[in-house]
Design a protein around this nucleic acid. Structure first.
Lengths: 195, 195
DNA sequence: CGAGATTGACAGACTGGTCTGTCTGGTGTA
DNA sequence: TACACCAGACAGACCAGTCTGTCAATCTCG
């Protein structure tokens, strides 16, 4: 079979799903294409995943780890909270063209699966909650490290920044251009300056 | 046949598409379901539309008229430019729950059809361009009717407002809650006050 | 006015293909 | 022997789109 240095069938399936679900969409990607590109037998696939939907859940969990890793790696280079917050948008500006403007894997899947009470939608919510928490921490840091700033409501501000992140991503996805992210970054800069 | 007081097969198809494509998604809705719910023969469908994709284009064009109508009807009641801009978000706040938080029909379709160079994506861009123009006109009105406002760049400001609209819609869609739109509205109010 | 031609919609069988998921049987390794 | 994997046939449903044939309303022209 495969030795420890090789990649296991399960990992090959996940990696193929990461690529195909993201670039083609969930509904437009069939199991047959996944197993063929993952070089895995169908029976093997179904021993690892009970259904396509469960693969999708595993895909989103893997994607969450990957994407948050990208974001944190990109932002962690900055020192101040303000630089970090702007760095979030710098990351988006770099990431969107690299991903062919396919946008957020989680929102895309959520659009394809309208039913709310599914494991899939749960994973999407979880991802966005984590993203919001991440933004909120930076903003709380900003308030704490700038004593002159008094009128800043961290919850309210982080909600706005989060909405600007989402808007920047989807508008950029639609136009195939980063100008919406640039605009969102400008709005955040103004927001911090005004506080 | 059908008499003049009835609805023509073509209209029945479009109305069914408006309902099903929006609520279920484009890929998840089959032609068979559309013709069955529109009470139209398959041959009749294909005399009016050469393909499912062309029906989708007609659907988006119809949806554009309907949705912009809703927006303009809702906003036109306000007098000042500032009230109108806030009114845009009041409309979103009312519309999203009424539509079961399915979000923007155009962005949803664009997500399902990743290929950029399609008629479908063209319609999406057209819709968003019109929406942006609408926002920009209100903001230019705001600048013109407030002589004290000097440092307001209408293009830049309308880009930010547009991104807040998109972010509000998709975040609200994801969470099934209007708080992102409320936050976006607050951000716009702050933006106008600060200028 | 009236008869035949035309039109447009109807129902639904049919084609060729894809979908998810199951199952059988073969292969190599521990 | 036991297990994990492979290849691929298969089932049953559904997909977009084509086609045949029927029927009723309307148009055209004698």
């Amino acid at each position: 079979m495969y030795t420890s240095s090789d990649i296991s069938p399960r990992e090959r399936i996940i990696e193929t799903a990461l690529r195909l679900f993201y670039s083609q969409g969930y509904l437009a990607t069939g199991i047959n294409q996944i197993i063929s590109e993952a070089k895995v037998a169908k029976a093997t696939f179904y021993t690892h995943f009970p259904s396509k939907e469960e693969l999708c859940v595993a895909y989103l969990q893997a994607r969450h780890v990957v994407w948050m890793g990208w974001l944190e790696d990109s932002v962690s280079g900055h020192k101040t909270a303000e630089e970090k917050l702007i760095g979030v948008f710098d990351f988006l500006q770099k990431w969107m063209p690299e991903s062919n403007f396919r946008g957020c894997a989680f929102l895309n899947i959520a659009t394809e699966i309208p039913a709310i009470d599914t494991k899939i939608r749960e994973e999407v919510i979880k991802h966005k909650d984590d993203l919001q928490d991440y933004l909120k921490e930076i903003i709380e840091d900003f308030a704490a490290s700038n004593p002159s700033v008094t009128g800043l409501d961290a919850k309210y501000t982080s909600e706005i920044v989060y909405v600007l992140v989402e808007g920047g991503i989807v508008a950029s996805q639609n136009y195939g251009d980063i100008w919406p992210i640039v605009a969102a970054k400008g709005a955040v800069r103004d927001l911090l300056r005004a506080s």
